[in-house]
Design a protein around this nucleic acid. Structure first.
Lengths: 332, 332
DNA sequence: TTGAAAGCGCTAACAG
DNA sequence: CTGTTAGCGCTTTCAA
């Protein structure tokens, strides 16, 4: 039924080893035989079976990707970066969604290992002990994309979240605000809970602004959470006049909450975000935001992974990409 | 180094067939031996090699997914639907982006076949002859998700795009508009070029409104294209007062274009969209839109694919899902 | 430059 | 209920 390397060998009067050589571009084949084999391959419409190849060579040319949720633009952008570089190096991608559940992440690692992926790119809010031990159970290279693991025992690609948060909040302080809220995403995220928050607090301290825990809200990462955070913070006796939002959806929720209350952004309220997805330009006012280069983080992670898979020399396994603030209209 | 089924068999004093049976949950194993084998598996930390299994069984438990671009919410939502059902049936997904290029789609089909996927879910703007012949080269089941192929020779999951377009345009007509523009996405898309357009024209004809080709614009699918379409149509001597947009990004571009010109939506201009992504609620005014159930289309497609892969009986291989219009604030 | 042969790790009859 | 034995389709020494 399915035609195999063996059929080609027979038809071309060569051994299967020779067919294998031409299929794999091995130079040790006489041009004439190569032509002959190629002709038969064409005629028989032969296609190598990648599974058999994977079993024999112990390389599958596929990498696993674990992210929280592909339907979120945030992660989708990252995956596109990964995929583009993967394609460039002739890898395919097995995509999996963890929904941020640690047990699911452990299980996904396990099934990816069993599928014999050559490497894994993973993004996770928090790398737990269980995950770490699962990750160490295999010698398959893993790179962490946009995720912080404090022991730094795995390669990773990130930006300086703390510094970026300091800059963002300073941008608000320099406009005279003293009541600045931090509407974080999920506080289960190491980046939000530790790095962005510490940046927020540092900026305030340096400006001698007292930290008010009422102004720190950890919700989830959606538009509705931004809306809800606005409701909550608006109730305060002394409500905030500026917001440092954990991501674009939250920022947009905050802005619409303010606008729906009849306030003007940026005249009455200022908002700075942390993401700069496509959404940032798709609102009025457009978002001023820290640029989190998700696509690049994905691309660089995948590139780094290829180096591990090819056993190339690695200069630095902890890579830190630059960030900047894109000035638009939600901050004066 | 890596531990195999053979190691387990030896340690447990059984044959590898028995180990295989317990690993695969075959009932024909005495409970006592099962326990014994399980214990050894645990002790040795054995994990089945899915590649070897795939070669032997000719089933890889992975399906291929071909979409235009994962970084577009539109497709990302679809993929999430596919992935959820795939996970439910213990399949993994190889995700590939075609960027709408026919040659790339052909090539992706080919590499997916060589990786021995058990099935494929594909979304494409237009199914070309080349693609069709590539699709027929293999007996691997393929289902088309949210894509129309006129000969209906492949299973597919869609909605009635034509009817939906009629309803959408009627919604505008019933508000008294006679200058209604159709800002389509890419006219390379069969759905846009044929179905939505014919729906648009039918609605106008039935209302005795003359079709003005100047009001039909086929751009691309992005926010910026919506903005650009506004510029173009605004130049007209007799500009449109209502818009039927091909998708949410275009609709939002149109709305912002109008607003930036000092117009009010929906009082001066009305806009109806065709998608209803998360974005629809994330603008002011919120979008009135035909609901294109992308997640469901993905989920149903994958479910249908499992039926083919399991050789279950298929009632109807052309499935048509219901649609509705979500009334919000961009239409009065 | 080419071929022979031994696996890769597992499933699936088949026999007992 | 369990074991034996062929493969699955390819890569990869090793010889020639």
């Amino acid at each position: 039924m399915t035609i195999t390397i063996y059929d080609v060998a027979r038809e071309a009067n060569v051994s299967m080893a020779t067919v294998s050589r031409v299929v794999n571009g091995n130079q040790n084949v006489k041009p004439a035989t190569r032509q002959k084999v190629l002709a038969v391959i064409e005629r028989l419409d032969y296609r190598p079976n990648a599974v058999a190849r994977g079993l024999a060579s112990k390389k599958t040319k596929t990498v696993g990707v674990i992210i929280p949720d592909i339907s979120n633009v945030f992660y989708a952008e990252l995956v596109r970066g990964i995929e583009d570089i993967a394609t460039m190096y002739r890898y395919n991608i097995i995509l999996t969604n963890s929904d941020q559940q640690a047990d699911k992440e452990v299980q996904l690692l396990s099934t990816l290992f069993s599928k014999q992926v050559d490497g894994i790119v993973m993004m996770s809010d928090e790398v737990t002990k269980d995950m770490l031990s699962e990750m160490e159970r295999s010698s398959v290279p893993i790179v962490l994309a946009g995720t912080v693991e404090t022991s730094e025992s795995f390669p990773s690609v990130n930006i300086e979240y703390h510094d970026a948060a300091v800059d963002a909040v300073n941008r608000l302080i320099q406009n005279g605000h003293t009541r600045i809220a931090f509407v974080s995403g999920n506080m289960d995220s190491t980046i939000d809970r530790v790095y962005k928050r510490s940046g927020y607090e540092k900026a305030l301290k340096e400006a001698n602004i007292e930290i008010d825990d009422n102004l720190i809200v950890g919700v989830d990462n959606t538009y509705d959470d931004g809306l809800a955070a606005w409701e909550e913070l608006g109730q305060l006796n002394n409500p905030p006049t500026a917001f440092f939002a954990g991501n674009d959806e939250i920022a947009i929720g905050l802005i619409h909450g303010a606008q729906d209350s009849g306030l003007n952004v940026p005249n009455d309220i200022e908002v700075i975000s942390f993401e700069n997805s496509k959404l940032a330009r798709m609102v009025r006012p457009q978002l001023t935001s820290v640029v989190l280069p998700l696509y690049d983080i994905g691309a660089v992670s995948m590139r780094l992974l290829t180096k591990f898979m090819n056993k190339e020399k690695i200069d630095e396994q902890i890579v830190v990409l630059p960030y900047r603030i894109e000035e638009r209209d939600s901050v004066k």
